[in-house]
Computed example of a mutant assay.
Amino acid sequence: MKLFLAAASLAVFPIAVLAEVVVTDPWARASILASRPGAAYLTLVSDMDDRLLSATTPAAGQVMMHASETDTNAITRMIHLDALDLRAGQTVRFAPGGMHLMLMGLTAKLEEGGQFPLTLSFEHAGDITVEVPILSVAFTAPEAN
Rank of each mutant, 00 (worst) to 15 (best):
F4E: 14
L42F: 13
I15R: 02
T43I: 02
G89C: 08
T129D: 14
R36A: 14
E131R: 10
A138D: 10
A60S: 10
M65A: 03
G98Q: 14
M102P: 07
G105W: 05
P117E: 06
H80F: 02
F13Q: 09
G38R: 10
A74E: 08
Q62D: 14
R93H: 04
R51D: 04
H100K: 09
A125F: 00
G98W: 05
F122V: 07
T140V: 13
A30F: 09
L10C: 14
L3D: 15
L103E: 01
S9F: 06
V45I: 13
F13S: 07
N145M: 07
R36Y: 08
T24D: 13
L81P: 05
A138Y: 11
T140Y: 09
A30K: 03
A60R: 08
A40Q: 08
L106R: 10
T91V: 15
P58F: 05
P96D: 15
S136H: 14
A39V: 03
S136I: 15
V45Q: 09
A108Q: 09
F122W: 06
T129C: 14
A39G: 12
S68T: 13
D71P: 00
D25L: 15
A95Q: 08
I15D: 01
E69T: 04
E69I: 06
S136Q: 15
I134A: 13
G126L: 01
A67G: 02
F4H: 13
F94I: 05
Q115D: 15
L52G: 02
L106Q: 12
P117W: 07
D82F: 15
G113M: 09
V130D: 05
E112T: 04
T56H: 09
W27G: 03
H100S: 09
L86Y: 02
Q62V: 11
P96N: 09
A7E: 15
I32W: 10
I32T: 12
E131F: 10
P58R: 11
R51S: 06
A141H: 01
Q90F: 05
L118D: 04
I128P: 01
A11R: 13
L53P: 00
T72E: 07
L10K: 14
L106F: 07
R36E: 14
